[in-house]
Design a protein around this nucleic acid. Sequence first.
DNA 1: TCTGGGGTCCTAGGACCC
DNA 2: TCTGGGGTCCTAGGACCC
Length: 418
Amino acid sequence: MARGATILHADLDAFYASVEQLLDPALRGLPVAVGGGPRGGVVLAASYEARAYGVRGGMPGWRAAALCPRLRFVRGHFTEYQRLGDAVMAVLRDVTPLVERISIDEAFLDVSGATHLFGPPPTIAASIRSRVRAEVGLPISVGAATTKHLAKIASQVAKPDGVVVVEPGTEREFLDPLPVGLVWGVGPVNEQKLAERGIRTIGDLARTPSSAVERILGHAVGARLSAMAHDEDARRVVTSRRAGSVGAQSALGRRRPDVEGVRAVLAHLADRVSRRLRAGDRAGRTVTVRVRFVGMRSVTRARTLPEPISATLTLTEVAERLVWSALADAGRDAEITLLGISVSHLTDQRVVQLELDLRPADPWRPGSVPGAARRAVDGQVDAIRTRFGTEAVGYLPAVLRGPGSVPDAFRELAEHEL
DNA sequence: TCTGGGGTCCTAGGACCC
DNA sequence: TCTGGGGTCCTAGGACCC
């Protein structure tokens, strides 16, 4: 069956760093790191000039500075990232409504219905690149292929600032020499496992029996690889997707947990999470907390409740119990470096609201404040914040911000739609 | 100098039900 | 007295992605 390379993957190059170089011409051509600094914090993004020195996102600032002494650290312009990312998506939606945005800076497009208007996929890819450059001012790479997975690999190969089209029938010769790490689901751990068996390229992988691959990587990743090899990969572009969980976490530096400190941090996290739930008319049944200890070891504790919750106070109380149960298992002297809360098993809040006050007392829904009162308080707080801003009102005085913690505007960039 | 924060998906074991 | 197999839900941990 004839099928063109009509799935595109468009991916902005070093997005945050490119925006900084766009906003401040003095930074162009220089190694730039967004976030962090020579004495702490973490690098959120690195320009290609910085990457040449080995600087990467997620790297501690001091290490980046050691690798590249002339590295320019800049604070992020987070609201600009949102605005410019949206502007790029608008360009893509000019081509086709079939746009699946998968993060702030990348998206899949299905252009099979757009070729009669705009020409074949390579022409569309080139036009997207030149329009984004001209109208937004940013470099973007585009991959085109018959499937999403392949289009994404193609855009990675195209970077920086390039285009790669994998014409139908040429998939094998394109893929075979590429490193296995370009495959979705093959990260550092799996790459190492494969390398230990002499498998370094996608071609090596294709020549390995699928049963052996599944033994190494597990059933799911193995099956995905085999689907790719047989061109049975996903091609459907999904234009909207609801989140399956909502969470928030905070790095704390290093501290010995005490009741007041833990409660303050959890109240802040629960406030962030529950506010987003209510804003999306959602509620969730499963509460998961994460506690990270010195040395990066972390544990989780989860509890599935009989009914979904979205009240700030209820979420705080459940999270507090879970955290202390994790801490009890870890021993009293353990120092912690991070606390996180996540709510999953989401349902539509409207459906369950009427039931909330009819149930008998439940040890996992404790407290003296009845559900109706909690909803009323949350509703008023939400309304005040809508009118006067997030800082106008809250359950607790401003929470202790660690030196490395990131601004809320950065957190919001990564939030998924509820 | 000592490692962010938002998510998704998978695996494995146990409880429980039929 | 001891026994099967399938399905669902829950929990904990971990790999991975941006």
